Amino acid sequence: MLLLGDPGCGKSTFLSRLKSGKRPIPSQGSTPPDTHFDILRDSDQPFIYDIRFSKRKFTLELYDTSNPNQHWTSLHPDVVVIAFDISNRETLAGLKGWRNDIIRYFQHGHGEHIPVMMLGLKRDLRREGEGIIYPQETYRIAQELRCDGYAECSAVTGELLAETFEDLARLAGMTTTDKGGQSAAGCSIL
């Protein structure tokens, strides 16, 4: 699995939170949740996650990058995740460029497809007001980019983190079937 997105959109924090496995402590009164976890370093790649899903065991290798000049273009991923920061409209606009890179580097022949999931990070930073990115807009963009799924979560608070990882695992698991993971009808909202 390859995780792509602009610098600072939350990719490393997302993967670090998954790796730590820590769940936030629900706040009671003024007690803040425990949000401390160690951030993974680029030198730790690939990040390995062993999971059980659909009565089968999978090992997910995730590579995290924000630089098109890094080695990621030589990888052969089964699934690509394009990530953006929900509180930063520029990172959402940058997804089109990442999607074009996926086509250029990984979809070489006619009809050759690689499953792509769009991932909104930093859900806890979504605030009402001018420039807000509503979920309806992100679903529409996921469909325009011909993504196979869309999910969003917050690594800091843990909101929808488990569900997002399950959606990623489901999409990765689909690539092990004869039909593969690319959907015929476009984006499914996960």
Rank of each mutant, 00 (worst) to 15 (best):
E152S: 04
Y139P: 01
T73W: 15
Q107V: 04
D124A: 07
K96A: 15
D78G: 06
I39G: 03
A155D: 03
P68W: 15
I132P: 01
G158H: 14
I51S: 11
R140E: 14
F47K: 05
V116I: 15
S154L: 09
L92T: 00
P24W: 07
T65R: 06
S74I: 07
Q143M: 09
F58I: 02
R89A: 14
Q45F: 05
L119P: 00
A93Q: 15
N88V: 01
H113V: 05
D34K: 03
E90D: 14
I103P: 00
I86F: 10
S74F: 14
A142H: 00
L75H: 02
H36S: 13
P26N: 05
I86L: 15
A155Q: 04
F106D: 02
D44C: 08
R126K: 07
E159G: 04
D42I: 08
D44Q: 12
W72Y: 15
I141G: 01
H108D: 13
L62P: 00
S43G: 06
E90S: 08
L160R: 09
Q28M: 12
E130D: 13
I141A: 05
D34P: 00
N67E: 07
T31Y: 09
N67Y: 08
R23Y: 12
Y134W: 15
F53A: 00
D78W: 03
L160A: 03
F53I: 01
E137V: 02
F84R: 02
I25G: 06
V81A: 11
E144M: 10
Q28S: 13
A155H: 03
W72N: 01
R104K: 11
M118V: 06
S43W: 13
D101N: 13
I51F: 15
I82R: 02
